[in-house]
Computed example of a mutant assay.
Amino acid sequence: MLLASTLASATDLVVTLPGSKLLSRKVVQYSCDASAVKIGLPAVPFDVEYINGSGNNLATVPILGGLLIFANVSSASGARYAAQQYIWWEAKGSATLYLDSPAQKDKSVCQPVTRK
């Protein structure tokens, strides 16, 4: 349960997860298909950070030049995260960003980049 959050500055956010002794963080770099820029993802490879602790599962994804914090939501398979009108769905080694707009549901498929 998110108990407290503090705005440290205009660009920093500190979230306190009480009792979260086992906090795990993982950064994965992705590269996406040609639809990426159309729905707000960077045209170049980018990092997504996965943060898990105290029953909270979050992912930070760069969208439209900013960083959105996605919260894990129920999923039949894989890990599905939601923020605003976006769904970031990570499953079987790849991820898909969905933009749910009134006109249609756009998507971009992303693959992890192997770092050397």
Score class of each variant (00 low, 15 high):
residue 102 P to M: 10
residue 4 A to L: 09
residue 56 N to H: 08
residue 20 S to R: 01
residue 66 G to Y: 15
residue 8 A to M: 08
residue 65 G to T: 15
residue 98 Y to Q: 07
residue 76 A to V: 14
residue 98 Y to V: 10
residue 42 P to E: 12
residue 30 Y to T: 01
residue 34 A to S: 13
residue 85 Q to R: 08
residue 61 V to R: 00
residue 10 A to E: 08
residue 84 Q to G: 01
residue 3 L to Y: 07
residue 52 N to P: 04
residue 107 K to R: 08
residue 24 S to Y: 09
residue 115 R to T: 15
residue 65 G to A: 14
residue 96 T to P: 02
residue 35 S to Q: 10
residue 45 P to G: 05
residue 71 A to W: 09
residue 38 K to S: 15
residue 105 K to N: 07
residue 12 D to M: 05
residue 25 R to N: 05
residue 22 L to G: 01
residue 19 G to V: 11
residue 109 V to H: 01
residue 96 T to K: 02
residue 100 D to R: 09
residue 54 S to D: 07
residue 108 S to F: 13
residue 100 D to K: 10
residue 24 S to R: 09
residue 31 S to R: 01
residue 54 S to N: 12
residue 101 S to L: 14
residue 48 V to F: 13
residue 59 A to W: 01
residue 19 G to D: 04
residue 29 Q to S: 14
residue 94 S to H: 12
residue 109 V to E: 00
residue 24 S to D: 12
residue 103 A to Y: 09
residue 104 Q to S: 14
residue 50 Y to P: 00
residue 79 A to H: 03
residue 49 E to S: 15
residue 80 R to M: 06
residue 58 L to C: 06
residue 111 Q to H: 11
residue 50 Y to N: 02
residue 108 S to P: 01
residue 76 A to R: 04
residue 97 L to W: 08
residue 116 K to V: 12
residue 113 V to L: 15
residue 93 G to N: 04
residue 9 S to K: 02
residue 102 P to L: 11
residue 38 K to V: 13
residue 116 K to I: 11
residue 45 P to V: 13
residue 33 D to R: 02
residue 82 A to C: 04
residue 77 S to R: 14
residue 31 S to N: 07
residue 47 D to L: 14
residue 102 P to K: 08
residue 108 S to G: 02
residue 69 I to F: 13
residue 45 P to M: 07
residue 35 S to T: 14
residue 93 G to L: 09
residue 17 L to C: 03
residue 110 C to M: 12
residue 36 A to F: 14
residue 11 T to W: 09
residue 92 K to E: 09
residue 7 L to F: 10
residue 59 A to F: 05
residue 103 A to P: 03
residue 20 S to P: 02
residue 80 R to H: 04
residue 25 R to D: 09
residue 72 N to H: 10
residue 105 K to L: 14
residue 28 V to Y: 09
residue 23 L to N: 07
residue 95 A to Y: 12
residue 39 I to D: 01
residue 46 F to G: 06
residue 105 K to I: 15
residue 30 Y to R: 01
residue 37 V to Y: 02
residue 43 A to C: 01
residue 54 S to R: 06
residue 34 A to D: 07
residue 95 A to K: 00
residue 53 G to H: 03
residue 14 V to W: 09
residue 11 T to Q: 01
residue 79 A to T: 13
residue 35 S to A: 15
residue 107 K to G: 00
residue 96 T to L: 03
residue 6 T to L: 04
residue 113 V to R: 07
residue 27 V to K: 06
residue 1 M to F: 08
residue 89 W to S: 03
residue 105 K to P: 04
residue 94 S to I: 06
residue 116 K to N: 13
residue 82 A to E: 08
residue 78 G to L: 15
residue 64 L to F: 15
